[in-house]
Design a protein around this nucleic acid. Sequence first.
DNA 1: GTTAGCACTCATTCTTTCCGAGTGCTAACC
DNA 2: GGTTAGCACTCGGAAAGAATGAGTGCTAAC
Lengths: 351, 351
Amino acid sequence: MELTDRQKRVLRAVVEIYIETAEPVGSKSILERSDLNVSSATIRNELAELTAQGLLEQPHTSAGRIPAPKGYRLYVNALMEEHRLSVQETERLNEALHLKMRELDRVMDEAGRAISQLTRYPAFALSSGTPRVTVKRFDVLMVDHSAFIAVVMTDNNHLANRLFRLPQTLDRNQLQMLASLLNGSFTGLTLEEFTPQLVRAASQALGDEMGLVPMVISFTMEVLEEQRGKMVKTAGLDSLLAHPEYQDLSRAQPLMRYLSQAENMGSLTVPEGQTTRILIGPENVHEALKDSSVVLATYDMGDNTRGVIGVVGPTRMDYATVLARLEYVAQSLSRLFERGQLPDSTEKEDP
Amino acid sequence: MELTDRQKRVLRAVVEIYIETAEPVGSKSILERSDLNVSSATIRNELAELTAQGLLEQPHTSAGRIPAPKGYRLYVNALMEEHRLSVQETERLNEALHLKMRELDRVMDEAGRAISQLTRYPAFALSSGTPRVTVKRFDVLMVDHSAFIAVVMTDNNHLANRLFRLPQTLDRNQLQMLASLLNGSFTGLTLEEFTPQLVRAASQALGDEMGLVPMVISFTMEVLEEQRGKMVKTAGLDSLLAHPEYQDLSRAQPLMRYLSQAENMGSLTVPEGQTTRILIGPENVHEALKDSSVVLATYDMGDNTRGVIGVVGPTRMDYATVLARLEYVAQSLSRLFERGQLPDSTEKEDP
DNA sequence: GTTAGCACTCATTCTTTCCGAGTGCTAACC
DNA sequence: GGTTAGCACTCGGAAAGAATGAGTGCTAAC
C-alpha cells in the first residue's frame, strides 16, 4: 500500500516531533510544525489511515499518536534526512577521539566513551575476534639473572608480553635457545594445535628443568585465547537513565543489566557489504532490547577484520544524528587502524 | 553518654533488621528478633532514648525507627560481629577471582567485576599511581625490514610495547644501535626529564633520519604518563538499581553518573596504617555520595604501593558481609602481586 | 476531497476518605 | 526505680472518587 506524499509528510512530522518531545503527537502540533496547508481534521484522517497501516500507534483513544516500530523503520529507510555534522560537532568529536589512543583495548574504551558522551546514549565498541590466530613470532628478553620477559606477536599484529620470575638463575644462552625453540616449534599454530605432547617434546629438546617452555606456552595460549574472542567495551551506562522512557525502573533495569554484561553485545553485527545498521525495537533478537533501538557502524581494523561500534537507546532515538556521529567515529577509527595497527606517535605532528 | 548494654542490643537489632528489610523498624519486630525479655513498651522507651542521642531517626511520628549515620557508625565500630566467610562463599570468591588474571588492568577489571557480583553492589578497583616512574629498560625487536617493536619496561615492572611501521627500510644494526642509545640516554629518567633537547641530541648521535628516536620516545612518554596516573575500573553499575533506596531515579541518577566517571573514585583512599575503611553517608566528602556508603580495602601491589578496591551502596549496607568479602579479595590480590608482578602461568598447577 | 463542529473517551491530577502500624503517655505493678 | 498494660493519637500510604482537558472520530456542510 503506497503512501501519498502528504501521508509521508505527516508520518515524518510525527516521528520527528515525538523524537523531540517524547509525548504522543496530536493533530494540532503537526499542523504547527509542518507546512501542510490543511486543517487538523484532514490530518486526523491521515493519522487514522497511518495508524490503520500499523505505522503509528495510539497509546489510548484520547491521546495523540506515537510511531510504531514499522513507522520508525519507514522513517529511517526513506524519510529521514541525512544529518550533516556541523563544524562544532566535528570539532567536539575530534577532540574526544584524539585523546589517548594506545593499545587496542584503550582505543575501544576511549571510542566508546567518546561516542556515549557525544550521543548521550550508552555506547559500546567491539572488535571482531580472530578465530584462527597464530603466533607470528616469539621474543625473550632477559631482565636479570632470575627474570625474563616473553613477548608474543600474533599474526594479527597484536603484541603481548609478560614478566617471568624464576627461583633459579638462567643465562643468556638458555634464553636464546628458548626463543629459537619457541619460534621453531610454535609459530603458525592455532590454539588447538598447542598439544601437551608438543610442549613436552619441546621441553625435552631444550633440557628444560625449570619448566620455561610450559610457562611461556601457557601464557601464549592465554594470549591466543584472548585474541580469538571478541572484545567488548561499554561506556556511558548512566546516560540511559536520562531518557524518559527509562524513568520506569522496571524497564531500565533489565536493559542496564543486559548492557553491563558486555559479552552480550557481541551478537550485534552488521551484515557483510553494509557499513551501518539500525535495529528498531522488536527487530532486536534479544528480549532485553525488544523495546529499544540499536544503531551500529563498522570500522576497519585492518587484516580484513571489522569492528563494530554502536549505541543503544529508546526506539524514540534521534536516528539521523546518532547515525552521522557514529559513522564519523567509525571512519576515524578505520583511519586510525590503517596507519599500522596503532596510531603512530608522530600523529600529533601531522597537519 | 554511655549506652547501657540493653540499648546497644536494641540499636544493633534496629540496624540489622533495617539492613535486612529496608523498612522502618518497630518495637514489636525488635522484640521478636532479639532475646531481650522485656515488653515492647520498654523497648519503645529505649528507642526514644537512642533517638534522642541521634543514633536513630524517625521518618515520621507514626513509623518505626531507622538508623542514623551516627548509629551505623557505632554499629560498625563496636556492635557489628565480624562476618566469617562460609566455605561456599570462599569457593565462589575463588572461582570468580581465579578466572583470567593477566595484565594489570585486566586484573583490576576482573577483580571489580567479581566483587560486584559477589556483593551485589557496584564495585571499583584502583591502583595507586607511581608518580616518579622511570624507564628501567628499552628493547627493540625487528619484525621485518620496515617494522619493529619497541618494548619499554618501567621500574615498577610494567611492560608496554608498540609496533612501528616505517616508510623506509632499516637494518638490524641500526636497531641495535637505537636500543643501546635509548638505554644509555633515557633510562632512569622521570617524565619531566624527557626534554626536547635530550631527544634531539640522541637523534643526532644516532644519525637518525627516520625520526626513530622521537617516535619511540613519544611512545615512552605516553607509557610513563599512564603509569604515573591512577587507574580506575568500575563494574556492576547495574546492581545499584536493585536496591530499594535507588528506586527513586532522582537519587540513583546522580550517583550513577558519579560512578560512571571512574576518575572520581580516585579520591577514595585508606589512611596509612589501616587496611580497610568504611565511609558512612555524610562522612563522604563528595556530594553524590552523601547518602550512600563506601567500603574500602587495600591491597599490596608490591613496590611499596597500595591499591584500593571498594564497593558503593546505600547506607543500609550489609557492612559485615561486604567488608569480609572485600578483605578476602584484597588479600587475594596482594598474594597475586607478591609472586612477581603478575601471577605466573604455572599458578593453576600450584597445590 | 476538505473542513467546522461537537459529543465522547480516557489518562492524569487532585481530593477525600479510610486504614492501621506504631508511637508516646499515663497509671498501675513489682 | 524500672517495667508493663492499655489506650488515645498521629500520619503516611492506599483506595476511591471527582474534575480536567487534550485529543479523537464522526457527521454534515462546503
